[in-house]
Design a protein around this nucleic acid. Structure first.
Lengths: 209, 209
DNA sequence: CTCTTATTTGACCAAATAGTCAAATTTTTT
DNA sequence: AAAAAATTTGACTATTTGGTCAAATAAGAG
């Protein structure tokens, strides 16, 4: 018996299988969204039978929920790491860089998140209005202080944060479009270009006159 | 008999109904993506019966295709309007403004497009690699000329365009998240804030030293 | 090795879904 | 007002889908 959330010895097989299933599910959900994905797709991708998958997870819903909850933690981390004792412009640019690296390293996670938000965030709206908002407010306050100290150019910190999210995640979420426009079906070269571009731009935006 | 694409007199009812169906379909597809949407949802949203919808469109696929093809035209227009005889920074900022207005006025279209790209652009990849790429290349050349003339700050024009797309569409596609973070469930106030913010930022990015 | 527990799956079910069709109804034409 | 054409829909089919279950198999404890 696996499944239930009660305290129970977790076998090696359980650990490995749940991980493999979640990995396959990430593949599928990130491409097709929740409603567009089927357990059969996850079964095929992972190589396990459908009943076997449902032995480890109660439902399709449960797989998705588990995925997105783990995701949210990693998602906040780069912003948490923004250090109010650091050099303002460098700190923001370092944050941009961390977000871009995350988009490059975890494009599936980024797309999963984008899909969820596009569909109205049915699973994580509370977390957005709670922990995420609190974190953004807190870091926006830090940036406001930097502005009054004349160490950061005047701006609307929250919208700057939106701009960072948008312009970094774009390279993961709109990957296909980026590749089509740049005519680079293979290779991740454009991430290097993007890193240079974004650093340059955010420096200009935020360096005090 | 409606349906077939051959030349045929189009009745008033045909015009009105196809329009109503496409409007309902936009609602549904933009929220759930292609695979996550059902003809029944479109039927319920539009108030017509399912067979009635299939009287006007050959298939679910056909409705989606029609929607996304019409969309693509409107999508390119703001960039086409970027005038190479205008004042560089003003031109780019005007483009930003047009894109943001579009995101505010047509959020469903923006989400539909985002959904399509997220899923790998199965329906419009050729258009991205064709007309879109050509247009972007052309406008990037204009911007490159402005840079050599010293009328635009040095930058990578294509990535600037990506940045414009990302940061404007963010307000439509990630609407739920924006509202959650700003704590403004109602009202479109944040679009006004965004307009000011984006104009300020892109001016700083692109005004020559 | 043997007993117990954990894992795996083929066969199945009920609901949802894309799409069909003939018959009924409405609109337009004459 | 008829006749012809266009529109509408209830009932239907075949397929897909989320999920169940009992029986079979594999792992682990003693």
């Amino acid at each position: 018996m696996a499944r239930s959330g009660t305290t129970q010895k977790v076998t090696r097989i359980q650990r490995e299988k749940t991980q493999a299933i979640m990995d396959a599910a990430l593949d599928v959900f990130s491409r097709h969204g929740f409603r567009g994905s089927t357990i059969d797709m996850i079964a095929k991708t992972s190589g396990f039978s459908k009943p076997n998958i449902l032995y480890y997870f109660d439902s399709k819903e449960a797989i998705f929920a588990e995925l997105i909850n783990r995701l949210l933690k990693d998602w906040l981390e780069p912003l948490i790491a923004l250090d109010d004792h650091g050099e303002p412009v460098d700190e923001v640019c370092a944050y941009v860089r961390r977000k871009l690296d995350l988009a490059q390293a975890f494009p599936r996670e980024s797309r999963l998140f984008a899909n969820e938000i596009l569909q109205g965030a049915p699973h994580i709206l509370p977390q957005l209005a709670g922990p995420l908002r609190d974190l953004v407010d807190q870091k926006a306050q830090v940036m406001d202080r930097w502005i009054t100290e004349g160490r950061l150019a005047p701006c609307d910190p929250v919208h700057v944060i939106f701009m960072i999210w948008a312009s970094t995640q774009h390279y993961a979420d709109f990957d296909v479009q980026v590749r089509a426009v740049l005519n680079t079906p293979e290779s991740d070269d454009h991430f290097q270009q993007a890193a240079i571009h974004l650093d340059q731009m955010f420096r200009r935006m935020l360096t005090p006159a």
